[in-house]
Write a protein that binds this DNA or RNA. Sequence first.
DNA 1: CGTTCGATTGACAATGATCAACCCTTGTGG
DNA 2: CCACAAGGGTTGATCATTGTCAATCGAACG
Lengths: 233, 233
Amino acid sequence: MPHQHLIKRLLAVSSLSEAEQRALVRLPYAVRNLADGETVVHQGERPRGCTVLMRGFLSRQRVISERNQISAFYVPGDVPDLHCLHLPTMDHDLCSTGPSIIASVSHGELRQVLRDFPGLTYALWGETVVQAAIYREWVENLGARAALPRVAHLLCELSTRLQKVGMAENGKMLLPFTQADLADACGLSTVHINRTIQELRRRRLIDWQGQTLELLQRAELEFIAEFDEEYLH
Amino acid sequence: MPHQHLIKRLLAVSSLSEAEQRALVRLPYAVRNLADGETVVHQGERPRGCTVLMRGFLSRQRVISERNQISAFYVPGDVPDLHCLHLPTMDHDLCSTGPSIIASVSHGELRQVLRDFPGLTYALWGETVVQAAIYREWVENLGARAALPRVAHLLCELSTRLQKVGMAENGKMLLPFTQADLADACGLSTVHINRTIQELRRRRLIDWQGQTLELLQRAELEFIAEFDEEYLH
DNA sequence: CGTTCGATTGACAATGATCAACCCTTGTGG
DNA sequence: CCACAAGGGTTGATCATTGTCAATCGAACG
């Protein structure tokens, strides 16, 4: 199993023995480079391994009533298709947003290690628990918040998750997302996302030029978004 | 661990040995009756056990920007706070909708059994995986669908889940939900939910009187909602 | 230099929210 | 037994947030 952040996070939730950590680290994997927009797994496929995102961003998406709806963003250390150990078919597309690098760990070998080291099963279950908490937040975000706080909440979440894996500092990060991506994630039109971002800029809450996003007044932004990072641990 | 449906479902995903099943069945639990509207677990609490819903309905809710947003409904056999094994604090209220009966299984004893029978850990992880899939569907429902298909999708989901636990037949079921509950789950106002339900009635897609809901033209309803029960197994 | 992609803008339309009643049923206390 | 209150459902009128359409602009790129 690759990636330090994944292992670090597994350690944070559950505590792993030396042997367990070693077994995890020794799991073989295949690395693959992805170009912007490339699809890792297609809806309907039955992947033979789990994907660990090592670098860059992935998004989970599917077309719902003629709209492309993004239901999750993944950052390095995430395992977007971990659930395929239990439910074999992917019911979404998994796409690279910007260039990225993934590692694939065979289901068979992973299952074997999980049988040998039950503590690892528990730890990976914890990963699913965290992802579920994020989905819940998205449900609330889409169901209850108006455009401005909704976008603000997403940006806060991204910033926090990126910070945890060392890809953001002081709310400053490199994001390959287009406004259309944000729109797909927030359930808004690109036009309205554009206006919402402009409003966030006007209020000096964010600075977003090219691929560089900076959250300027974190406290104020979190207040508007009712953001509480608790759910991300 | 109580409840046949939970055990049946665990068996459906993972296969459990005789010993594992016995260990599960023998877990002690405390039963509790809940009145309509009663709260099982409050936001911020750190429950000492997992809740297994035995009868009735629970909903997970929280106030987001002055709106009560429901992020999940639970039916008998579900374990709404299973994730608290990993993340100790509940960040939502868990409320009974209509009268219900729950069983509480101590975290300590559950953990012990999971240590003794790793196959059970894997099986319960599967439960979390399914719940996560439901959240994803809700994200898509709230993000991408207009009011009518959104409500239709929720009703299809409920019907399918209830059918699996023997609480619905031919799309006919007993639901204790008010229109306000639906509104909170769908991110719509009660007024608009009311009009949407009337439209569903007018098109002879549902018959809903008192607590009895019947889905009249399942195929047509699923078509409108783009509902595919795959994600529920 | 033309093409494409993403960002931006304006005009207009529409879905759904809000406000304010009103009705009906049910339950409760005098 | 009746009066009243409360909760849930229903309706109409009006408002506004957000979507749609269409066009423009600028940068990047072959």
